[in-house]
Design a protein around this nucleic acid. Structure first.
Ligand SMILES: NC(=O)c1ccc[n+]([C@@H]2O[C@H](COP(=O)([O-])OP(=O)(O)OC[C@H]3O[C@@H](n4cnc5c(N)ncnc54)[C@H](O)[C@@H]3O)[C@@H](O)[C@H]2O)c1
Ligand SMILES: NC(=O)c1ccc[n+]([C@@H]2O[C@H](COP(=O)([O-])OP(=O)(O)OC[C@H]3O[C@@H](n4cnc5c(N)ncnc54)[C@H](O)[C@@H]3O)[C@@H](O)[C@H]2O)c1
Lengths: 209, 209
DNA sequence: AAGCCAATGTTAATAATTTAACAATAATCA
DNA sequence: TGATTATTGTTAAATTATTAACATTGGCTT
């Protein structure tokens, strides 16, 4: 499979999320324009993305929801499941854990790490919290590949450097500090302030009073 | 000022965030390539964005950090400050509140809303929590324009419909449910699962074992 | 069963975004 | 001071992403 554009990968994830909701609603088929409308994009975009992953419905009564979920999974999931950990199980860490835990068959949230004695060795938001000092051992023992960083900013750089050294291959950074990782490690960053400021800018520009 | 591309607006927010860090570090000047490196983009991109907002340094010893912060503010902030509320002050709501509170001079987090009796009428993460039932009155009283949605998904649609009716002009939606808003209301959505799955995909594709 | 319709897959066109190229010019230093 | 260098602003090119156009085809209607 050819390497997909990042944007398409993001949308595939969104398609699957929406399709899973459809299953909840007992919808077994969905039209491209319907799926598109739920995500505020165009039907053409949906069809084009599905073309890129070689999915074809043949049927003209919409896509088979279950089948499409599986197809997307074959593309974006890894063969064997990949293990994930949250580092820093504070407010944000708990939100991530509670939300993500058990949502995906191929991405398992298997641990969290913290240095607060009140938190370590307990199960928090469905995930066992280990002392940060054990992280090297646990990354290896549990074969953790992806780290979600939700520690206070001051620790972000050091923790990144260490976890990468211990074998982490992908980092989702929620701390305020932009990180640097060696090539071979994939880094994704997100900051809410950017989103909020973007909303504020467009509210202002629309001149809605 | 011409309407800026959404991507540029996002980056301006990121530039400012980075520049504020520079101030912390007592750096008063920064080169385009330096700013770029911190954000993993190119210097050309930085210069082009600044060109778009009509900022020019003249000096060849980097941008004046303070001045650039101000200039960006003039572009992306609104004249008078804009008020923001968090709806649903659970884990994620508290993370947002704690992180955002007091960070921007022109964007004030002035309230949170919840329906949990344990939470209402208390100050949580630095913000007063009001009962959700008072939201109509409080939106008007406090002149709230932007809502950050961090309630359980089942309530997202109804709350959106109501708050828009009560005067909200921008929504940052963190719930899992894709929302629909009337035109004139700006909507931004973010879902961590997309980010995590994107990381997982690129880790897999890089074939890092 | 024939013909229409609605929805799809795909190629081509357009638009948005990023990157490259380069001229202009302060700062540096011999 | 004058040559050199480093950094900028800006135009042009390349790349990437989205949208439009359209031929195709299964389903539905009569
Ligand atoms: N990117 C975003 O959009 C966004 C939004 C909100 C918060 N944040 C950031 O996320 C981080 C966490 O926010 P929060 O509200 O959850 O804060 P928090 O204080 O509730 O959580 C931080 C957790 O990290 C733990 N911790 C501290 N030092 C540690 C270390 N050295 N090793 C391991 N664990 C450690 C603490 O014990 C705590 O449990 C902060 O950096 C905050 O600025 C980012
Ligand atoms: N988009 C993302 O990336 C992301 C990440 C994590 C969680 N989430 C979602 O964010 C939401 C909150 O997550 P959380 O971990 O903070 O959950 P939580 O249960 O800790 O918080 C939810 C809060 O909403 C309040 N609430 C419930 N019903 C309400 C109502 N009708 N009106 C007002 N307040 C109400 C609850 O009292 C609680 O305080 C969930 O929908 C979750 O799925 C999204």
């Amino acid at each position: 499979m050819m390497k997909l554009p990042g944007k398409t990968v993001e949308r595939l994830s969104e398609y699957r999320r929406t399709l899973l909701e459809c299953l909840n609603e007992k919808r077994n088929f969905i039209f491209s324009h319907d799926l598109a409308a739920r995500l505020h994009i165009t039907a053409v975009q949906v069809r084009r993305d599905l073309m890129l992953i070689g999915y074809s419905s043949v049927l003209r009564k919409g896509y088979d929801v279950r089948e499409l979920i599986d197809t997307i999974g074959k593309i974006i999931d890894s063969e064997e499941s990949m293990n994930v950990a949250v580092i820093g199980i504070g407010n944000l860490g708990r939100a991530v854990a509670g939300y993500f835990k058990g949502k995906r068959s191929k991405l398992n949230l298997v641990a969290s790490f913290d240095n607060d004695p009140q938190k370590v060795n307990r199960v928090i938001s469905g995930v066992k919290c280990y002392p940060y000092t054990d992280i090297e051992r646990m990354i290896k023992e549990l074969d953790i590949r992806i780290a979600i960083l939700t520690v206070p900013p001051d620790f972000a750089r050091e923790i990144t450097e260490e976890t990468v050294r211990f074998g982490i291959k992908g980092i989702l950074n929620f701390t305020t500090i932009p990180l640097n990782v060696p090539s071979g490690v994939y880094l994704e960053e997100y900051d809410m302030i950017t989103s909020i400021e973007k909303v504020a800018y467009f509210v202002k520009e629309n001149k809605i009073y």
